[in-house]
Simulated assay, not measured.
Amino acid sequence: MKRTSTYFPKPGQVEQKWRLIDATGQSLGRLARDVAVALQGKDRPTYTPHVLTGDHVVVVNMDKVRITGDKLLQKTYYRHSGYVGNLKSFILRDVLESHPDRVLQLAVKGMLPRNKLGREMLKRLKVYAGDSHPHEAQIGQLSEQREGN
Score class of each variant (00 low, 15 high):
L122D: 01
E147S: 06
Q141A: 11
E144Q: 14
S132H: 09
G130H: 09
G140I: 04
K116W: 04
K116P: 02
Q141T: 10
G140C: 05
L125Q: 01
L122H: 01
I139G: 02
S143H: 14
Q141H: 08
E147W: 08
L125A: 05
R124P: 01
L117Q: 09
E144G: 06
K126D: 06
Q145P: 01
G140R: 10
I139K: 15
M121Q: 08
G140T: 12
A129R: 02
K123R: 14
E136F: 06
L122C: 02
S143M: 13
S143F: 11
K116Y: 09
R146M: 10
R146G: 03
Q138W: 04
A137F: 07
E136I: 09
D131F: 06
G130Y: 07
A129D: 00
K126M: 10
L117K: 11
R146W: 07
Q145G: 09
L122A: 09
V127Y: 07
K123I: 00
L122V: 03
S132I: 06
R124W: 01
K116Q: 13
E120A: 12
K116C: 05
E120Y: 08
E136R: 14
H135Q: 12
Q141L: 13
K126H: 15
L122M: 13
E144M: 11
I139R: 13
Q145Y: 14
K123G: 02
E144C: 11
M121E: 02
L117V: 04
L142E: 01
R119C: 04
S143I: 10
G118E: 07
R146L: 11
Q141V: 07
A137T: 11
L142C: 12
I139A: 15
G118W: 08
E120P: 00
L125V: 10
L125E: 00
A137K: 15
R124N: 15
H133Q: 06
H135S: 10
D131T: 11
I139F: 11
D131S: 13
Q141D: 10
K123C: 04
Y128T: 07
E120H: 07
S143C: 08
E120K: 14
P134G: 01
K126G: 00
L122Y: 03
R124C: 05
L125W: 06
K116V: 13
S132R: 14
S143K: 14
Y128K: 05
D131W: 03
V127R: 04
L142Q: 07
E147T: 04
S132A: 11
K116S: 14
L142Y: 03
E147G: 01
Q145R: 14
Q145C: 15
L125N: 02
D131K: 14
G118A: 07
S132M: 08
P134F: 05
S132N: 10
M121Y: 00
Q145I: 12
L125K: 05
L122I: 08
R119N: 12
H135E: 15
H135W: 15
L125M: 10
Y128F: 15
E144R: 14
S143W: 05
A137S: 11
